[in-house]
């Protein structure tokens, strides 16, 4: 039996290694005659299928809603509520206010859940009804890892999955969070909130810096996303960069030694390691205090490909003259 399984496994593995396993992305072009016909057929097909699926779905939905509203007729007792938020700032009072919770009414679980999820700070919500009538609500909250620049609408924060939200409660503790600049906001497909595109990489970057390179992280003030892609597919491009402006440069632009750090969006770990080691072993100070030093520098990370057999990541300090930012 297991030999047969092995055999099957092997066949599968071989198939996955064959050229057919590589994904193909067949795009229908518009200017061939057959292409146009293909498109029309596709549209017709999609439409008919959508109609079919829509019909079935609406049928099921009707049944479901009927079921749900049917249940609420039963109990008229006031409902007890148990609200759980894992270490977040939002509490039960907020919950009641936000969802306009009425104890005496029969709770519609879906309505509650949807209302909860309509708040940008809520990442996930679970609404359960215990058999004895208690309503249990578990909520996961988004925590900010960065903030956007203050504009008229106050301080807005960015969570690790990219969603942007405002919060007065967090506004008090905003100092530890880096500011994001030159952000092109997009609408998150799943939740409909404003979000920062391709946040995952950025979140990774900020987290790595904050946990492993604390000292470097504490010097940073602003992160500019002007060279950062706004599309997931562009992340692997070599010129997707994260540029960080340290505190000193923001406060005192004329006198700061380092104006900017430019990291690669994909290889920032190596860059951070380079920077940290340069700081640690004294070469950094040596360069900055050398007699031939420039008034200010921008730190750049590139891949050195001079010797094609040995590529390595290199940090370069580009001297800037005082008036040239």
């Amino acid at each position: 039996m297991s030999r047969k399984q092995n055999h099957q496994n092997l066949i599968e593995q071989m198939h996955s290694k064959e050229w057919r396993a590589l994904p193909q992305n067949v795009v229908l072009s518009g200017d061939t005659k057959s292409g146009k016909r293909q498109r029309v057929y596709e549209i017709l097909r999609k439409f008919s299928v959508a109609l079919l699926v829509g019909g079935i779905a609406s049928l099921l939905a009707y049944v479901w809603i009927d079921m749900m509203s049917g249940l609420s007729d039963e109990e008229k007792n006031p409902v007890a509520v148990h609200f759980e938020n894992n270490g977040g700032l939002l509490d039960e009072a907020w919950f009641r206010a936000w969802t306009e919770f009425d104890e005496n009414e029969a709770p519609n679980l879906h309505h509650l859940r949807n209302r909860l999820l309509a708040h940008p700070q809520i990442y996930a919500a679970r609404v359960l009804r215990h058999p004895d009538g208690m309503l249990r609500i578990d909520v996961l909250e988004r925590k900010p890892i960065a903030r956007l620049e203050d504009d008229d609408s106050g301080v807005r924060f960015v969570a690790a999955d990219g969603v942007v939200f405002s919060s007065d409660a967090w506004a008090v503790r905003q100092s530890g969070l880096p500011i994001l600049r030159d952000v092109r906001l997009a609408i998150d497909a799943k939740t409909g909130f404003d979000c920062v595109p391709v946040m995952a990489k950025l979140a990774d970057f900020i987290e790595t810096a904050r946990t492993s390179y604390r000292k470097l992280f504490e010097e940073w003030d602003t992160i500019s996303l002007r060279d950062f892609p706004s599309d997931e597919r562009d992340i692997a491009r070599p010129w997707s960069l994260i540029s960080v402006v340290p505190f000193a440069a923001v406060q005192n632009p004329g006198h700061a030694k380092i104006r900017e750090y430019v990291f690669s969006a994909t290889r920032f770990r190596e860059d951070l390691k380079l920077l940290a080691s340069a700081r640690a072993n004294g070469t950094w100070d040596m360069v900055l205090s050398a007699p031939t030093r420039a008034p200010a520098y921008r730190v750049l990370f590139i891949t050195n490909r001079k010797n094609p057999m040995k590529e390595f990541r290199e940090m370069r300090l580009i001297p800037l003259s005082a008036e040239n930012p």
């Binding site: 055999h7 092997l10 593995q13 290694k17 064959e18 050229w19 590589l22």
Partner: peptide
């Protein structure tokens, strides 16, 4: 044949596929 296939799977590097 299976033995040969498994050896082949190991020999072909990650960034290549069998034609």
């Amino acid at each position: 044949r299976d033995d040969a296939f498994s050896a082949c799977i190991h020999r072909v590097p990650e960034n290549r596929h069998i034609v």
